[in-house]
């Protein structure tokens, strides 16, 4: 698959917004110091879009991803996820949104070492109403999607890095969320495995029109996405 590289042209018109950020600021306060982590971020991500966020360490990439992922609240400005304003959500409904509409993929995988592969994948389904049988079927389907059905009973420690990240992707997609947030998903992998993972993400974007927002350091990977948002010192530079 060829990538249109930084071309902000939507493929299937018309598309609704998955994520809308308007004048978002994030300030961290300690006793004496205020740190401006994000300043006046405006961002509109369409449904089915695959974008990347780039920037040096400490530029606010992860903070931005956490805000989009409803793990944190902005100091000011508004965030709309699938049209719903985050500021109006209670803690409980935010948890529910994370559960049903967002899937996370992390650099260090964050699999729970005490659970085997299937149990790890099932995790998001635990926080919604579903039977054990249903959960099992959905988890198996998600694992099939990432090509890891053979290792369902293994524990994370028995898997290679690439396999672990595939489990993490399966976990992110098991609940059919519209939006996938990936925080340097290939950062801990060698380039071949990184390629594999990137391939899976692209496939998810193409075949299931998942909205994907990926933080990365890797210029080559960023070029494979539809557009790239660049941050420097908490400011959006492109």
């Amino acid at each position: 698959m060829t990538s249109p590289a930084a071309q902000p042209i939507p493929k299937n018109q018309p598309r609704a917004s998955a994520i809308q950020l308007d004048e978002v600021n994030k300030v961290y306060r300690t006793d004496r110091i205020e740190t401006l982590a994000l300043s006046k971020i405006d961002l509109d991500v369409q449904k089915g879009e695959f974008i990347s966020i780039m920037g040096p360490s400490g530029s606010g990439k992860s903070t931005l991803l956490n805000l989009i992922g409803l793990l944190d609240r902005p100091s000011s400005g508004s965030i709309l996820v699938n049209g719903k304003p985050a500021a109006e959500l209670s803690d409980r409904s935010m948890a529910r949104m994370r559960n049903e509409e967002i899937g996370f993929i992390f650099q260090t995988f964050h699999l729970i070492p005490d659970l085997n592969v299937v149990d790890n994948v099932e995790l998001p389904l635990l926080y919604r109403r579903s039977s054990g049988n249903e959960r099992r079927l959905m988890a198996e389907a998600a694992l099939r999607r990432v090509g890891l059905t053979a290792r369902m009973r293994h524990f994370p420690s028995q898997l290679s890095g690439g396999q672990r990240q595939r489990v993490a992707i399966a976990r992110a997609i098991v609940g059919n969320p519209g939006i996938l947030l990936a925080d340097e998903p290939t950062g801990n992998l060698d380039s071949q495995m990184g390629d594999e993972i990137m391939g899976i993400l692209e496939d998810l974007n193409q075949a299931e029109s998942a909205t994907i927002i990926m933080v990365t350091h890797d210029q080559k990977l960023a070029e494979r996405t539809e557009r790239t948002v660049r941050l420097f010192d908490g400011r959006q530079v492109s």
């Binding site: 803690d91 948890a95 559960n99 996370f104 992390f106 260090t108 964050h110 998001p124 635990l126 926080y127």
Partner: peptide, 16 residues
């Protein structure tokens, strides 16, 4: 912490 973070990210509320 990692486990707790993951659970939170995947929709566990404080009550959970």
């Amino acid at each position: 912490t990692s486990e707790i973070g993951v659970r939170k990210a995947f929709g566990a509320s404080t009550a959970h």
